[in-house]
């Protein structure tokens, strides 16, 4: 980017303050190769790898046959949204706290809600791009079929999932001692859960690992998105899973608000 216009010299307020922050968050995100690679290109790379390798394969799920990609595309999209929301927020906030950027913002009149709101809005924009690219590639390249009647259910699952993982990401960040530990904590919590939650391949409901995964939000997000695209019935709303996501959203929000710190802890 070679030219940038200077923002008009009018004070930003309310929602305008969030869009103001969003603009600079987006600039900073796309210019930061590690961040953009880790949370944006990573899920797309896995989409291409897994979907290409398993093209034409069928799997059996709960006695029903379906193509691997019809199963996998909603799962990898859930993974992408979790990266853009959960991993992105947890790592960005850990870094900014450690390197004094949060404290720097606190020295200005920018309210905390606008700072966090801008970051969440940025995560949502990244998620939206991932939704478009993932579903676009799924339908265009990998023969995934999505019924138009399921769009409301897909939207609900995505919105609730994104909100939940934003909240949980900010909450987890408050438990991360320093920026060095952030990638390890984020991957250690998210990656194993994606395996037992059915992101990459089905994990039968009756299995022990699925029971463990039930306690965490990842499996519920994957299931909600899978049911929205492929599930039985007319609407595709996985009510139980959506409620679990809402529960984690509340828990994450409470922890995030209570434990949020502007400065690194004393060492």
């Amino acid at each position: 980017m070679t030219t940038t216009s200077v923002a008009p010299r009018k004070r930003a307020k309310g929602i305008g303050l969030i869009t103001h922050q969003l603009r600079y968050e987006q600039l900073a995100y796309w210019r930061n190769p590690p961040a953009a690679f880790f949370t944006f290109l990573f899920p797309l790379m896995f989409l291409v790898l897994f979907a290409s390798l398993n093209k034409g394969q069928t799997i059996e799920l709960n006695g029903k046959k379906l193509s691997y990609n019809q199963y996998f595309v909603p799962g990898i999209l859930a993974y992408g949204v979790m990266g853009a929301c959960f991993s992105n927020l947890a790592m960005t906030l850990s870094n900014r706290r450690e390197f004094g950027q949060l404290k720097r913002k606190r020295a200005t009149p920018l309210p905390a809600w606008a700072l966090i709101g801008g970051l969440i809005a940025s995560s949502i924009v990244i998620s939206l791009v991932l939704v478009i690219v993932t579903f676009g590639a799924g339908i265009g390249l990998y023969g995934v079929v999505i019924s138009a009647s399921r769009i409301p259910a897909i939207a609900v699952a995505l919105i609730l999932g994104a909100a939940c993982f934003c909240a949980v990401g900010i909450a987890l960040q408050t438990l991360i001692p320093n920026a060095d530990a952030a990638p390890a904590v984020v991957n250690f919590t998210l990656l194993p859960l994606t395996f037992i939650s059915g992101v990459w391949f089905p994990v039968p409901d009756s299995s022990f690992l699925a029971k463990v995964a039930e306690a965490f939000p990842v499996r519920h997000f994957v299931t909600a998105l899978f049911d929205a695209t492929n599930g039985p019935g007319s609407g595709g709303f996985a009510t139980k899973d959506l409620l679990w996501l809402a529960g984690w959203l509340v828990l994450g929000t409470v922890v995030a608000v209570r434990r949020f710190r502007w400065e690194p802890g004393r060492r």
Binding site: T4, V6, A7, A12, H20, R31, Q101, R104, A107
Partner: peptide, 23 residues
């Protein structure tokens, strides 16, 4: 503050323009 902490991937002009609208 004692520590320098501007957004590494923005330009000075962008960082200043971002902060200007807080006031």
């Amino acid at each position: 503050l004692q520590e320098t902490a501007a957004e590494a991937y923005l330009t000075p002009r962008e960082v200043l323009a971002m902060h200007a609208r807080y006031y």
